[in-house]
Design a protein around this nucleic acid. Structure first.
Lengths: 289, 289
DNA sequence: CTAGTGGTCTAGTTTTTACCTATAGCTTGT
DNA sequence: ACAAGCTATAGGTAAAAACTAGACCACTAG
């Protein structure tokens, strides 16, 4: 019976779903599941009935909800007992769907942990926001950019492709291969230049707009493609291999306009979040010759 | 900033001492120390000033105290939201000072954890109480006794004693040794009988009333003595050795009068507490021949 | 002045808890 | 029947909290 359980409870109650609550709390779904089960055990009362499309609160759950809200509210009020200016810092951050959700979660989680009273509003990249997750290449002189991690471009191919026999792949092996091209792509020009320089060509079978669609086509066997590594996580229907003679990458981070200023501890938090990031590489990098 | 920290804070505030709070919360003192430090860090405010005879609350600490109490109170109120009969179970338990504090702590801790809303009143053995920690030998037909652990009698001797060379000791080696006798002692008769049977004697140098005093005399080099193992924990100024040809022990547990009845889950909790006990033997038991 | 005592803090280790991934089982909609 | 979406469980890993041992300080008594 701790505060964390109550926070999760509130999220579940409001979302009417464990999975949605998990997303909102930036944790995995089983954490919510066990935490709610434990709370039900402590209180000796079922709080939700589970069904196929989520959960609905029982009478007990409905009764508990306002108490839980008050509790959590009181606790965060206590935080601010000794701060002179309450400064209820509120930020909007825009996300692009093709960036690694796992890494972005980690960053947002440390921000929420380290900055008491921070409320975040996550919006789509189309909307304007105080901060945005983006690639270094998409920032201008008007921006300040805090790099967070690097995303290597790797070759994505169907599971049964003959190139899977190689632990890493040379750009020459891609010559004349069926290829899924993707625009916009921030390394398209570099890629084309590299191919031309070596007199190589690809057999472009499809031209798509999003990484996810490109991955679907690769999995379907239409060809191979070049995709940032972290975008293709969690798919076991295709195979990734690093390039061994060229290294293409993008730098992902947080950017904001130069004019905009933020409290120093926010910036510090971004930097420490970078330190603490746990990056699970799914492919083993070859040593560049 | 969780509830546990606030509980510790309340204990420290009321006791004006970290060590006293630790005793009250049944944890070791460094746990309180780090927890308070962490709370001060979270709130960004010193809560206590430390000095040589404990701590005193700062203005911030005094200000926080009522909030903390309310918080903890509200939370335990929430526990009882869905229980029909509030049953604020309140028990008194009497302790005898010579039983192992560490093991008793463990039992009490699991009782407080498993039985929500339980309040315990620990009193001295001279006072009457609902339950008492005692040895099986001291219970009568009028009692119900729940055994919790066994306490082996071991030989206590000064660190430089020649018997320390033996990993375990035979009763015959004790013949004619300087000995500290202790009364009352629940195995005194068995001991005397065993010695007589083998025609052995001891050279009784002192006759004392408490185990602690006996241990002090042993440490001072006046002689050796026979002491329940768990009573001599945490003393590094003497040396313990098990007996290898006779096994003397006492059974420690909780007793209450037959007339008195308790809710079933209390009894269950006592039994699970017994299961979960972690008994660190300080001497290695020999296999009895 | 020195040794002993009582109290807090630090370091290193172990235990416990929380979390994640993977996967199973269930229900619903196609 | 199958795929999709949701929750529950199992097993392993990482973080948090606990304990032990010992350092350090201030006070007290001899």
């Amino acid at each position: 019976m701790d505060i964390r359980s109550l926070r999760y409870f509130i999220a579940v109650y409001e979302e009417r779903s464990l999975s949605a609550a998990a997303k909102r709390c930036f944790v995995a779904q089983p954490s919510i599941s066990t935490s709610i089960a434990q709370l039900e055990d402590d209180l000796d009362a079922k709080l939700f009935v589970r069904h196929s499309k989520g959960v609905s609160p029982t009478d007990n759950g409905t009764q508990l909800y306002p108490h839980a809200c008050k509790m959590v509210g009181d606790l965060s009020a206590m935080r601010n007992l000794f701060v002179d200016s309450p400064t209820p810092l509120s930020l909007s951050i825009s996300l692009t769907p093709f960036l690694s959700g796992s890494l972005i979660s980690q960053v947002i989680k440390t921000m929420l942990n380290k900055i008491p009273g921070l409320t975040l509003n996550l919006v789509d990249e189309s909307e304007s926001a105080d901060l945005r997750f983006t690639c270094g290449r998409y920032t201008t002189e008007e921006d300040i950019f805090y790099p967070l991690w690097e995303d290597d471009y790797v070759v994505a191919m169907p599971l049964d492709h003959w190139l899977t026999d190689f632990a890493s792949i040379s750009i020459k092996q891609i010559d004349k291969q069926p290829f899924i091209s993707r625009t916009p792509c921030d390394i398209l020009e570099s890629w084309n230049y590299l191919m031309q320089k070596q007199g190589l060509t690809t057999d472009i079978r499809a031209q798509v707009k999003t990484e996810e669609y490109a991955l679907d086509l690769v999995a379907a066997g239409l060809g191979i493609s070049l995709i940032p590594e972290h975008s293709s996580r969690g798919r076991n229907d295709l195979c990734l291999r690093p390039l061994n003679d060229v290294k293409l990458k993008r730098v992902v981070g947080l950017a904001h306009r130069k004019e905009q200023s933020f409290p120093a501890h926010l910036i510090n938090t971004i930097l420490t979040a970078k330190q603490q990031l746990k990056i699970n590489k799914s492919v083993i990098e070859p040593k560049l010759a």
